[in-house]
């Protein structure tokens, strides 16, 4: 087995375990490369089908191509696509771009709060109607008890402490000091009412693995990752006020792989273009405990 085959097999195993154990299962799809690989792995696991909803948190500040890409794939791949957002904060202009919040506060408001309340079903969810191509109010208000997320252990300090199946309490809090044991591919699949489990099938993958898999499987990714002739590209995608392109002339997947292996990004952190990471040294972990992806 090759390295990528092993990673794929383990991720597929985890996805199938999640599907067997959680009646209300959902997968978070940020439209970025990692969660798009995750989505592809779900199609691998279930032989071309994705038997659970994909949830996207729309901050309204996402780069517009991301939303187009999302809806195109959702229709093509027959996905049960759901989105949620913090409409109240957006109406009241309580955001960083409006000057009312810091970057981190904005992440908490538009991402964490929206995510927690969309997952619990407290706030409205909108589901893609495949007949019309438009989003309609989702009648299913049941909380998702299993949430599949595309985090990787190599991304950021706090993430290296994760489990494949990681419990969250009623407030979506992550008790980082008291993680359940996890060995021999036996996962935490029993949980108390009101709590839920985050499932991390990509934990063992690196940024390079992701791109090599995208190349091997020919997975569609959003063109924002490639240089369109301006000598810059996005290495990590988020909201446009806080995500900046990096200088790079990589125009396709192969060139990105080369750049990661030997070029200038060899030793530079992937999220260096994400401004919110720099505000506080433990910022991401603080956010992460409350449910930020």
């Amino acid at each position: 087995m090759t390295h990528l085959e092993k990673l794929e097999s383990q991720s597929v195993y985890i996805l199938r375990e999640a599907y067997s154990h959680f009646k209300n299962l959902a997968m978070l799809w940020s439209i970025g490369k990692d969660s798009t690989v995750l989505l592809w792995l779900a199609r691998k696991a279930f032989f071309g089908h994705v038997p659970f909803p994909l949830v996207h948190i729309d901050t309204s500040f996402k780069i517009p191509e991301m939303i187009q890409f999302r809806d195109k794939l959702a229709l093509e791949w027959n996905l049960n696509m759901v989105y949620g957002s913090n409409t109240q904060a957006l109406q009241e202009k309580r955001t960083f771009p409006a000057g009312a919040l810091t970057r981190l506060e904005c992440c908490k408001t538009l991402k964490t709060d929206a995510l927690v309340n969309t997952l619990s079903g407290k706030w409205p969810r909108y589901r893609l109607d495949h007949q019309t191509g438009a989003y309609v109010l989702d009648e299913n208000k049941e909380p998702y008890t299993g949430v599949i997320v595309g985090v990787r252990a190599d991304e950021e300090g706090s993430r290296s402490k994760e489990r494949y199946f990681s419990p969250r309490d009623k407030q979506s809090d992550w008790a980082v000091g008291d993680q359940p044991p996890e060995f021999w591919n036996q996962f935490k699949t029993d949980f108390a009412p009101g709590t839920h489990i985050r499932i991390h099938p990509l934990l063992d993958w690196t940024e390079l693995d992701i791109w090599e898999y995208i190349a091997a499987e020919n997975i569609p990714v959003i063109p924002l990752y490639f240089d369109q002739g301006k000598g810059e590209r996005y290495r990590s995608l988020g909201c446009y006020p806080c995500t900046f392109p990096v200088k790079s002339t990589a125009q396709n997947v192969q060139e990105i792989i080369e750049e990661l292996k030997t070029g200038k990004f060899k030793d530079i952190a992937e999220r260096s273009g994400r401004a919110q990471d720099k505000e506080d040294s433990g910022g991401l972990e603080t956010l992460r405990r409350s449910g930020y992806m």
């Binding site: 195993y13 199938r16 375990e17 599907y19 067997s20 279930f46 032989f47």
Partner: peptide
């Protein structure tokens, strides 16, 4: 790799995605 040992595949699930027009009955596992 335990390739030369007896074959074991614990069944994770039996999938039939009939609603999507797929009539295969697949026994999935590692």
């Amino acid at each position: 790799s335990p390739q030369d040992k007896p074959f074991r595949m614990p069944v994770q699930g039996i999938y039939k995605f009939t609603e999507s027009g797929d009539t295969r009955r697949i026994f999935a596992g590692r």
